[in-house]
Design a protein around this nucleic acid. Sequence first.
DNA 1: ATGGTAGGCTTCCTA
Length: 256
Amino acid sequence: MKIATWNVNSLNVRLPHLLEWLRAATPDIVALQETKLEDARFPAAAISELGYHCVYSGQKTYNGVALLSREPARDVLTDIPGLDDPQRRILVATIGDLRIVNLYVVNGQDVGTEKYAYKLDWLKKVTAFLREELQRHPRLIVLGDFNIVPEDRDIYDPEAWRGKILCSEPERAALQGLFDLGLHDSFRLFQAEAGHYSWWDYRQAGYRRNLGLRIDLILASAALRERCRGASIDGVPRGWERPSDHTPALLELSDD
DNA sequence: ATGGTAGGCTTCCTA
């Protein structure tokens, strides 16, 4: 089965891209971020026509997460213990025999700002939740827009970004905290090369110049590691007209 | 140090 994550940067604008990509890529589970839609405006009908069930947690203008799946989602959570957050950034559900956690991690704006402190606090609380969730659900997938560059090989110019937002040591330490729970960056189970990216800034012709970052990740728990068959980034949608600034990341998992 | 582009219901905020 294929599991994917994609920050669509407005599902209202990107719905045609999403539908085209679903037809082409035929994923079984898709986590979306930055839908920027209130739940009443979620385009469930258009998506269900392609054979997907939808659950979503959205808000006007900002944030918003959704899960699309061939099988219906069960035991859905939009809020987690210890994190009282009006921002819609988390969606947890059981799909088949997998527990899925879709995250739109806080961007953090700039190191040292209020939003940066919120990012680190948010990550601390989500990590505590995931530690518990792994006890309840060993077959756990945590995926989404992490807004953290894991390593120097995941960014076009590591020296220019050293210590900056998305690359700072406290952010990388927070991501390492997730790895320490036994969650594996599935892309790196299959690909060691530098130069594979999932996001390019709209500004300064970032995509044309390939000034990319790999910040969209699919983490697989230790119990799922043996079922991982391949991981990839589908760069095609980033090249379409009026694209999201992110492109989808994928994980292929065997059925058992 | 700043600004560049994109999306939203906006005369700026977020990324």
